[in-house]
Design a protein around this nucleic acid. Structure first.
Lengths: 201, 201
DNA sequence: TTACTATACGAACGGTCGTGCTATCTTGTC
DNA sequence: GACAAGATAGCACGACCGTTCGTATAGTAA
């Protein structure tokens, strides 16, 4: 659909846009995607509320683009590095190693952006929730796919349900994230690493 | 400290109080403990904003008492039934079985009250966050204790780190909850049940 | 029944929310 | 260097936020 014309953008505008969306992704992991206010966000990056708002048609649009930005960050730091590993099970190991690193390095102050969003938006309705739910689905689908590849390659036992294995791996990541953020205690990430590596042995 | 006098309460006031706190606990699993507004809460139970507010000295106080109410519910539905099981490992099994039931039965519309609160308050500060973090700690401590008891009774392998086992059990519960709420799909709870029962075999 | 007070209400406070409109800069193109 | 368009700021709006106040009502103890 080329119905709505793309309007051209200036370089300084694009820079501001990126600054806004990076800050929004960070603040959303602390105050929530909904709890984050445009005024707070504007103050945080030294812009006026209206100047910031002009980049988006609505708060919902800002939220959707914030999700896209967070996904780009996750892709660069976690998904891409995992994709180049040699074997399926090594891709899985690298994926979760990078994932836990990205949490521990406080790429987002409140831990994994998507873990936060999933918990916050669980019972909401609308495009923002649908987008988060969709991304979670495709994350799980990707894990399951890697598990099946590892089984086909003989790296993991073939008699296990790939969906079950994916669920358990994801559980460790989720709990590691929540515990680490809540208690500021890396022990939770260590537990997660141990559980994941044992499951992929 | 008996400095502040307990003021006496009327029966109808206590009834309202309970109604308010039950509704608050439910709504908090949808909108968050912070996102929940007093006006919305008042509308929801057919009270005036000021009439409701008079029961508490501040929103923070309302939040703290809401947490206590949610804990009572969790205790009745999950902790108490587990306490009467015969052996340590049966207490663990019952604990998580009841926990997953309490999620599936939508006791709170947004899943486990405490899972929601932990995710929401991870990076906040103040008494509300401290209370949630403390309760999470004592939950984990209780699980670890049961694991050690089960090990001492020979029901679980004695060479495993009890903290690690507790982490993994809790991971399944947490992920089961988030997935079930986000996708309205009981398959996540089934995965959690399977993982927990296998871990406790 | 009377006296006391917990309970509940409506109205209003200052503040912040998301969202528009308008004017003034700033940038890129010819 | 002129000009169109994008970027940003200022201002204002209606709605809602947590909170306070004064007041009317209703449960309870004497």
């Amino acid at each position: 659909m080329a119905a709505t014309e793309e309007r051209r953008r200036r370089a300084d505008g694009e820079r501001s846009r990126q600054k806004i969306l990076r800050a929004a992704a960070s603040l959303a992991t602390v105050d929530g995607l909904d709890g984050l206010s445009i005024g707070t966000l504007a103050d945080h990056i030294g812009m006026s509320k209206s100047g910031l708002y002009a980049h988006f048609r609505s708060k919902e649009q800002l939220q959707l683009e914030t999700i896209d930005t967070a996904l780009e960050i996750l892709t660069t730091l976690v998904l891409d590095p995992a994709a180049v590993a040699a074997t399926p099970v090594e891709r899985l190991r690298t994926l979760y190693d990078r994932f836990l690193d990205y949490i521990e390095e406080r790429v987002f102050p409140g831990g994994c952006f998507f873990a936060s969003a999933e918990s916050e938006l669980g019972m909401r309705e609308g495009r923002v929730k649908d987008r988060i739910a969709g991304l979670q689905r495709s994350w799980v689908a990707r894990i399951e796919e890697l598990v099946r590849e590892a089984q086909a390659a003989g790296e993991l036992p073939a008699d296990e349900d790939s969906a079950q294995v994916a669920f358990e791996l994801d559980s460790y990541g989720m709990m590691g994230n929540v515990g680490f953020v809540l208690h500021d205690d890396p022990a939770y990430l260590a537990h997660a690493r141990a559980a994941i590596h044992r499951r992929l042995r």
